[in-house]
Design a protein around this nucleic acid. Sequence first.
DNA 1: CGAGATTAGTCGTCACGACAAGTACTTGTC
DNA 2: GACAAGTACTTGTCGTGACGACTAATCTCG
Lengths: 157, 157
Amino acid sequence: MAPGLQAELKQKTPFTSRQQEAYLALLRTADALQSSMESKLKEFGLTGTQYNALRILRGAGPEGLPCSEIGERMITHDPDITRLLNRLEQRGLVERIRDQHDRRVIYGKITTAGQKLLREMQEPIEKYGKEMLRHVSQPELQKLIDLLELVRCGRKV
Amino acid sequence: MAPGLQAELKQKTPFTSRQQEAYLALLRTADALQSSMESKLKEFGLTGTQYNALRILRGAGPEGLPCSEIGERMITHDPDITRLLNRLEQRGLVERIRDQHDRRVIYGKITTAGQKLLREMQEPIEKYGKEMLRHVSQPELQKLIDLLELVRCGRKV
DNA sequence: CGAGATTAGTCGTCACGACAAGTACTTGTC
DNA sequence: GACAAGTACTTGTCGTGACGACTAATCTCG
């Protein structure tokens, strides 16, 4: 049994199952990486959620994307797109466009200011992401990716 | 290159690095498992944070724990213990005790009602956690745990 | 002893997520 | 054409996280 996580948590009782140990390790590791990345993103005045949304909109091209589509593509599904777009719109990074055919639909679209910001961030952020995992070898990364996909795809809905 | 996560995210551009792919896979997998567990915890009227805090306090024994200690042991470090304890205290699941010697320190302590709730939850919650990962073999779980620990312990602070 | 630094916790504010209720619009059916 | 059902988004509320200002108590050092 690996004593690492138990020591971190200072738990006196051992894990009741390997599954629970993996679950906790997963949450803590994701939180550690995410917190680290959030602090880096803060230098550019964006939160992780905002950066994620901007990248999705940039990838969507000039037509933009309906709010519902944005929500589905976010790392964390079903966030509150309305208010997320509000904040980004106030800062001039995205704009809203109402669909001409179906007037219920509102498209979010990245502005040139938003694209400029993303361009400036790209190199340092990608470098930072690589740095966070620089001590993990390529084969280990691949193994981790495969295992995570196994966990995710076959999980209980 | 495993196409799985790319397909999920509907991203047109490939990952710029294996590190980035691993990072995103980690966040999405953790979110999926956590969301699933949160929905189960909701049946008992607790959020994940509250359940986590209660378990920490139960593990701490009858003396309880100072707020700062609770914060350090949480899965997500440094949450707002004051208001978390407020909500749990309102529901009678924990109580606060001021340290006699150092009157700055306040101990959080689980009540009998809190212990009773945890006892009722334990069996179904543990079962649910195992179910979530039932399709992952024991050696795979162990490999995943080891890889996660590698990622976590050597990461950039 | 007493001023200043430190520590533990509290509180205000903002940004998320989750959920539920509400509104505007479209579609299916008659 | 009109009404019911469904869809897409908006809004209100609650529970976190993140940050920072603030208070109370303790410690350090002259």
